[in-house]
């Protein structure tokens, strides 16, 4: 019984923490970007605009929920829920410290990648169900892009799995604590694998320079063009949670998780995750975006061969 209660409390607190953190990550992004653009960002709602995400949420709750007449109603309703669910579900296996982890499962990495891959489904679903040409184009682009970038993502995530000798994320972190962070060693494969993982992650979570499914200047608002109020908020939230969880996964797989030069603990994990999260937004607000065909070319010409080579290298190193 106590096991169940513990699990419930842990997962609920992780869920709440992630949602809260994500909400304020949006505030953080807006302030951060504003400074990049020599603006101030939100200042009027609460101290330094800290209550801005709350105001947005309260507003979005009150908006009319429009379902276009020609839309596929069931899919249209399902897609945003699924999007948020997938993003949050992936957080289950990410260990924030040795004890704080939603579900310790042996095939944690596999679960993470599988859930990550499923997130494209609600996106395409939304694009299809909206019966809007811009949304449809966005959905098609998302599908093509996610399927392609899944390959280097999985292959580069396999490098720490091989080096750590386990599919369990916690075990991978522990083996890093025992030896060294995979980004540094034990063999000169971790850094390129990390870079690949980050690149593929940017593409998976539809961030610039790979944000062509959303591409607001081309496709109005991509798949979310027809969504109003809370449904849009769920998509929005799902996107941020996805980026957040992917940053956390990258810190766990490559950056030693909760390990730190002194006083190891959860704060290190949170710090690393936020650093990667900030990096994603730094990139997002500095670069322009690729065209979809260029995106595919980069993936299949460069990322896939390199990730295969890395995987083989890691295998060879372990065997030898």
């Amino acid at each position: 019984m106590s096991v169940v209660v513990t699990a419930l409390v842990t997962s609920l607190s992780i869920l709440t923490a992630i949602l809260t953190v994500t909400a304020w990550a949006i505030w953080f992004e807006r302030k951060f970007v504003a400074r990049m653009q020599s603006r101030l960002g939100p200042t009027m709602v609460g101290p330094s605009g800290l209550l801005q995400p709350l105001a947005d949420l309260v507003k979005l709750l009150q908006k009319e929920d429009i379902v276009p007449e020609a839309a596929d109603r069931r899919l249209f309703d399902l897609a945003p829920k699924l999007a948020a669910l997938c993003a949050l579900g992936a957080a289950a296996v990410v260990p924030f410290s040795a004890s704080i982890v939603g579900a310790k499962i042996d095939l944690g990495v596999l679960y993470l990648l599988a859930i990550g891959a499923v997130t494209v489904l609600p996106v395409f679903m939304a694009g299809w169900a909206s019966n809007n040409k811009f949304a449809l184009l966005g959905g098609m682009r998302a599908l093509a892009q996610s399927l392609s970038y899944e390959v280097p993502l999985v292959l580069s995530a396999m490098v720490p799995v091989i080096l750590g000798g386990s599919m369990d994320v916690s075990k991978i972190v522990e083996s890093q604590i025992a030896t060294q962070w995979f980004i540094i060693g034990p063999v000169w494969l971790g850094l390129p694998a990390f870079c690949l993982f980050m690149l593929a992650m940017l593409a998976e979570s539809n961030r610039i320079p790979f944000d062509i499914p959303e591409a607001e200047s081309e496709l109005v608002s991509g798949v979310t063009t027809e969504y109003t109020g809370m449904k849009f908020a769920l998509f929005y939230l799902g996107e941020y949670v996805h980026t957040f969880v992917a940053s956390a996964a990258a810190s766990a797989l490559f950056l030693g998780g909760w390990d730190g030069p002194f006083a190891p603990g959860m704060h290190w994990m949170v710090l690393k995750t936020f650093a990667l999260f900030g990096f994603v937004y730094w990139v997002r607000w500095s670069l322009l975006r690729f065209r979809s065909d260029q995106l595919m070319r980069i993936c299949w010409y460069w990322l896939v061969p390199v990730s295969v080579a890395l995987l083989l290298g890691a295998g060879a190193w372990v065997v030898l």
Partner: peptide, 18 residues
């Protein structure tokens, strides 16, 4: 032009603001 290439929610917007 940068906003057309980079999106209103991306690097293009930064060029635009500057």
């Amino acid at each position: 032009f940068a906003m057309d290439l980079g999106g209103a929610l991306g690097g293009g917007a930064t060029v635009f603001m500057h």
